[in-house]
Design a protein around this nucleic acid. Sequence first.
DNA 1: GCGCCCATGTAACTAGTTACATGATTCA
DNA 2: TGAATCATGTAACTAGTTACATGGGCGC
Lengths: 189, 189
Amino acid sequence: MPKQNKTKYALLGVLSLKPGSGYDIKKFCDFSISHFWNENYGNIYPVLKQLEDEQLATRTTEYHEGRPPRNVYFITEKGKRELDAWLQLPVENSPVRSELLLKLFFGRDIPVANLVDKLEKTRDRMRAILEEYALVEDFLRKEYEDQKGLHLWLATISYGAHNARATIDWCDETIKSLQNMDDKLIGTR
Amino acid sequence: MPKQNKTKYALLGVLSLKPGSGYDIKKFCDFSISHFWNENYGNIYPVLKQLEDEQLATRTTEYHEGRPPRNVYFITEKGKRELDAWLQLPVENSPVRSELLLKLFFGRDIPVANLVDKLEKTRDRMRAILEEYALVEDFLRKEYEDQKGLHLWLATISYGAHNARATIDWCDETIKSLQNMDDKLIGTR
DNA sequence: GCGCCCATGTAACTAGTTACATGATTCA
DNA sequence: TGAATCATGTAACTAGTTACATGGGCGC
């Protein structure tokens, strides 16, 4: 198996749920998997063509009056097999890069208030994300009640929620410890 | 401020702690920030040259008999100012991509045992990471007891630990729920 | 009338990784 | 004797993002 374009498998995955155009796929990604995966048009359209070239998907063009033509893609049997094979492969861990942690790590000479601000913003973002997850979860449970893979979709949300809560706790702890240290410094002046 | 190469700031950060060669910087990164940031030689050497061109660092070459020459870089005042300015800027969140979650999300037709295996491996890796963090933390507390930024270094480790524990819990829960579902399915056969 | 939605796509660019090349020293 | 460490660097490649171009329909 060659070093691969994971976008390819993401698109095959979306098409395995239902056929759609590049535009549809983008919308689906933004709604359903954006908390752990993102795709942009500049990537989607070329890869869709590539899928067609490799016979992993077929394309039909729909014309509707007063609308731009839609290129609708369908996954083929070959595409399903290739997706399935990839899904079963062990997970490759891609390198992480956290700008927040980098700034914190080297932040000993910048004002504590600035660091605290970054932490508060992170915490607030995580809280907002948690609320969103709750909405998405409700929506999925109602709309896709009998969908076979629902529990897996919920599991990905649960992952996000676990980590968001962990990050919120860490932010709170770290803010407190930074402010404590700062108070002590003032006390000794 | 232009769209930037964050490697640049990572290297300035390392050089702000102490001068060193590309090789030294790589070693430092691997030891200290590798749990949230990685750099490779193919990136470090060109960026060091760039730092010199922009007068953010100076270079001296050391010759030692029987050893390759070392290009040692020192951060300049201009470099410090640029690092400081960047550190104070708000954090830009870079897109996340989790192959594990992608495989889980689309995994409804692959064997449960395969999914469980992926989760177990993830959990085991997180446990190993937790143990490593404990060692690193001990080491830092002893070796850098009086280092000004120690609490910030520890905070980055704490971040990793919080998230690792969250991921372990999530793995355990998800494994259980997958196995439960599987049992029920067998029961109805 | 303004801006958003639908809909596709390319080109240019930025970023990051891998492979290759070199070669002495040190340690098991 | 073979592997690891020290030490630098380039070239080729892979991946991913942004900006641009186009243009009708629809709702406020």
